[in-house]
């Protein structure tokens, strides 16, 4: 651990100020422009439902809604969030009540270790916002970018069907 800076190191402040809406509230955050939305949410804003997994867009654990569409927040530079609406699992809770989708995940026991759960819920939410009654195939496509290493897929799919599927 470096305790002091040597005189020939120049520290440039290259942080930018970014304004966006997070779970319905406007936030202004100062961060390095190229920092990922994922890292800013976790490290600077304390939003810990958003999980770092692969940080390469392959696992879906960091999925958030950007203007109502599911995106992997590891692939969004914080400057690109300027002016956008970001929603995380925390934002689905209204007046202390869980979203029906979150309730369904609880009722179906759709998680084991739970690390992937917020990402799955947000992916499913993105789908239901676009198609309130998705087919099974549409559900599978919507969560295709999310990985659950415990293998809770059947329960996850059941939970999503419970809220939005054609067959209840």
């Amino acid at each position: 651990m470096q305790k002091f800076l040597t005189p020939n190191i120049i520290v440039l402040d290259m942080d930018v100020s970014v304004t966006f809406t997070l779970n319905g509230k406007q936030v202004i955050v100062k961060a390095p422009a190229a920092k990922s939305l994922l890292r800013v949410l976790r490290e600077d804003l304390g939003i810990t439902s958003v999980k770092p997994g692969c940080e390469a867009g392959e696992c879906g654990a960091c999925t958030v809604l950007m203007d109502g569409e599911a995106v992997t927040s590891c692939l969004v530079m914080i400057v690109q969030a300027e002016g956008h609406q970001i929603v995380t699992a925390e934002g689905l809770v209204k007046d202390g009540k869980l979203d029906p989708l979150q309730e369904a995940f609880v009722e179906e026991g759709a998680s084991q270790c739970g690390y992937c759960t917020p990402g799955f819920i947000i992916s499913a939410k993105g789908l239901l916002l676009e198609k309130p009654n998705p087919s099974e195939n549409e559900i599978l496509e919507a969560i295709g970018g999310n990985i659950c290493r415990c293998g809770a897929y059947p329960r996850i799919i059941n939970a999503i069907k419970k809220v939005g599927g054609e067959q209840h």
């Binding site: 867009g57 879906g60 999925t63 950007m66 569409e69 599911a70 995106v71 992997t72 692939l75 969004v76 992916s123 993105g126 789908l127 496509e141 919507a142 295709g144 970018g145 999310n146």
Partner: peptide
Amino acid sequence: SKTIGAAQIQNL
């Protein structure tokens, strides 16, 4: 386009 990445990638 529907086969590229997954929903999250197609949105970005």
